[in-house]
Computed example of a mutant assay.
Amino acid sequence: MHLLFVADPLESFKIYKDTTFAMMREAQARGHQISACEPKDIMWQRGAAVTAAVRDITLTGDPVHWFSAAQHQPGGQRQALMDFDAVVMRKDPPFDSEFFYATHLLEQAEREGARVFNKPSALRDHPEKLAIMEWPQFIGPTLVTRDPQDIRRFHAEHQDIILKPLDGMGGTGIFRVREDGLNLGAIIETLNQDGSQTVMVQKFLPAISEGDKRILVIGGQPVPYCLARIPQGGEVRGNLAVGGKGVAQPLSTRDRAIAEAIGPVLAERGLLLMGLDVIGDSLTEINVTSPTCFQEIADQTGFDVAAMFVQALEAAVAKPL
C-alpha cells in the first residue's frame, strides 16, 4: 500500500515516543510506501480533485536523521489524495478551525474515492470531551454548561470538582476546586468568559492517584494493556505532557467492559483508532484525533501496538467501499 500520513512537521517528531512514527516504522517494515504532509499542504481547486504537496519518505533507522525524503520540503508536485491506498489523519490537537476545515477537505477526498482514517466526519462528530456524554453508564457526575450558576450548583452538590475547557489538550486549563470553593469565581471567569465559553465540570475522582488510564481501541478491539498516567508532585493531572509517569498495566475487568461496549460502536462510525481515558471505573474522555501511547505500552509490555494498528488498517483498506 501507499500510505499518506497527515501530521505535524516531521522535524518536530520525538521518535522515541511518537505514535505516528511507530505507525510509519511498522508500515515500512511490512513493505508499504510512506508519504507525509501537513494539513496546510492540502488543496482543493475548482473542478479538480483534492490534492496535497507531499514528501515521499523512507525511515533510516538513525535516531537523529530518522527519515530521508525525495523532497526536502513539499514542492510543486501535487498528488491527489484518492490516489493513495489510505490517508491516515494524525494531526495533533487542538481541534481548532483549521483542523475543522481540514476534515472538510478530507471528506471531499473521500467522495472522490480516498480512504481516510479516522473518518473525517467521525472526527467532527465526536468531540473528545463531549463524546463521553453518550455513555452515561460509564461516567461520573458530569455537567456541560455555559451558565455560571449551573457550575455553582454543581459544586454545591458535589463539593470537590474538576473544571476544564472543551477544547483543552494535554491537561491544559484544568482546575480543581475543593469543598471550600476557593477561587471558584475566578476560575469560572477564566474558563467561562462571561458565559461565552462552554465548560465541562466533573466530580473529582480520588482514583486519579492511581493513574489516568489510556485504553487504546483499534478496529473496535481493545489493546490488552493500558498506560496509567500517574500524577507526580502534588498534581491532579496525570497527562504525560505535564509530567505524569506512564505505567503500563493489563486492562481491568471494568476497563475491558468499557472498551468492548464503546469500541465496536465507534469503529462502525469510522473511528479505526481511539483512546479511552479512564480514572478508576469512570470514563473521562474519548480521544479520536491522534491517540498516543503506542511506544510506551510496547516498551513496557512487549505488546506491539503499532503492528495491531497497521494490521487493522490493512484490513480496513481491503474492505470494499
Rank of each mutant, 00 (worst) to 15 (best):
T253A: 15
P222H: 11
R30Q: 15
A228N: 11
C293M: 15
G113L: 03
L276P: 11
A156P: 03
I218Q: 02
D212T: 07
V310S: 07
M82F: 13
G280C: 05
A36I: 09
I42A: 04
E110L: 02
N239W: 00
A53G: 15
R111M: 10
V223A: 01
E189Y: 04
V177I: 15
C293R: 07
G185I: 15
R176F: 15
A49C: 09
Q71W: 01
A248D: 06
D92P: 15
P127T: 13
T289Q: 08
S290T: 06
L273C: 06
L182Y: 09
D281P: 12
T19K: 15
L321C: 08
I262Q: 01
G233S: 08
L205D: 09
G140A: 13
G233P: 00
F175H: 06
V236Y: 13
R237H: 07
E11A: 15
L184C: 11
P250C: 07
R115M: 06
I230W: 00
R115H: 04
P206S: 00
I187R: 05
V310N: 01
T284D: 04
P9A: 05
M89A: 01
A267C: 08
F154N: 07
I262S: 02
E107H: 08
F294K: 08
N192C: 07
V217E: 05
V288T: 12
I132P: 04
F154Q: 08
F21E: 00
L3V: 13
D96K: 02
A186C: 04
V144I: 07
A29I: 13
T51H: 06
M308E: 14
K91I: 04
F67Y: 15
Q197S: 14
I34E: 05
M82G: 03
L10V: 04
P148R: 00
A102Q: 08
I162C: 12
V217Y: 09
D255W: 02
K245H: 11
D92F: 05
L216V: 14
A228T: 08
D194G: 05
I187N: 04
E189W: 07
P264K: 03
H72W: 08
R237W: 05
A298D: 00
A70H: 07
A307G: 13
A307I: 05
G181E: 02
G76E: 12
G219V: 11
I42F: 02
M274A: 10
G171L: 03
P74W: 09
D299E: 12
I151A: 01
V247W: 14
I187Y: 05
V247P: 09
L321K: 13
